[in-house]
Structures are given as structure tokens and as C-alpha cells.
């Protein structure tokens, strides 16, 4: 490019108008933002969110108290309370505590669970007013966390 042509380009703000043309073109493309509370974002199946524990058709827990999830958890947020049944020589579940304050949603517990009992579900709205609501016992894990209701 000759120096004269360069100067003309500079005086006519060609470089700035090139960018402006792109911006104007983009103005006619549809918006990509989500209006969150009214519009829910699409969450994929594998998303690791709220922990839940599964029950069978009779409403009995699927957990076999094998303690693998508690062992694999890097943050030690799972406590499995269990007792050995003297007749069957098998462990029976007496309680299960999931401390979500420490959970970092790595998904190791659901990966190792032999009965697919504990799962991290795609539910992602986990904000609570009280920190004690994050220590989940077995009923809360089976039912799901209580939803927070916001006053208008």
C-alpha cells in the first residue's frame, strides 16, 4: 500500500468503520442471553448438582451400607452409619449423613456406588438461608432438599 493510500485510509477512519460494520451486523442476530428466573437454562443429564439417594419400588433405600462412597470422598463429607446384623452377617444401614458444606461435586460417590443409590442430580438451585440445611440426613436425601421460597 502506498503512503498516500494509507493516509487516505487513516483520514477516512476506514479501520474503525470496518469494526463498526461487524458490530452493526451482529445487532441483527438473535440475543443469546437468558432471562434467568423466568427462563430456565438447559442443564445436561450428567450435570453434578444436588445429591439424592434412590429408593426401590417399595420405598426402601437402595443403599447396602458398603461404605465405598465415604471412603472415596476426597472431602470426607459422607458418613455411613451401619450395624452388622448378627443373623445374616451383613451390614444394615442405620443412618446416612451428607455434609454438603464440604462437597465439591466431584462425582466420585455416584461413580463408585454399586447400586446407583447416591446420585448427583441436575438440580442446581442450592442456595439456602440456613447453613444447617446443608447437612442432609437420609430422609432429606431421598425426598430432595426443601425448596427455598423467596418473598416478593
Amino acid at each position: 500500500m502506498t503512503p498516500v493510500a494509507q493516509l487516505v485510509k487513516k483520514i477516512l477512519f476506514i479501520d474503525l468503520f470496518q469494526g463498526l460494520a461487524i458490530t452493526i451486523r451482529e445487532m441483527f442476530t438473535p440475543a443469546v442471553t437468558e432471562q434467568y428466573p423466568r427462563q430456565r437454562s438447559h442443564v445436561y443429564e450428567r450435570f453434578r448438582g444436588e445429591p439424592r439417594m434412590g429408593v426401590d419400588a417399595n420405598g426402601k433405600t437402595l443403599c447396602i451400607a458398603c461404605n465405598l462412597c465415604a471412603q472415596v470422598c476426597p472431602e470426607n463429607c459422607i458418613t455411613v452409619k451401619r450395624e452388622k446384623n448378627p443373623e445374616t452377617k451383613k451390614f444394615e444401614l442405620t443412618g446416612y449423613v451428607f455434609d454438603m458444606r464440604r462437597c465439591m461435586f466431584c462425582g466420585f460417590c455416584e461413580e463408585i456406588c454399586p447400586t446407583d443409590c447416591i446420585q448427583l442430580t441436575p438440580a442446581y438451585e442450592l442456595a439456602r438461608y440456613d447453613v444447617r440445611d446443608f447437612v442432609l440426613e437420609l430422609p432429606a436425601l431421598e425426598r430432595g432438599m426443601d425448596k427455598t421460597h423467596y418473598r416478593k
Partner: peptide, 15 residues
């Protein structure tokens, strides 16, 4: 991030 979420289950801390 959507592709990562679909494949690994998280957008940022993918593991």
C-alpha cells in the same frame, strides 16, 4: 462450556 457440561458434568470444575 455446554459441550464440557454435556461430557463431564460440570462447566468449570470438570474433573
Amino acid at each position: 462450556l455446554n459441550i464440557l457440561e454435556m461430557t463431564t458434568g460440570a462447566r468449570l470444575t470438570t474433573n
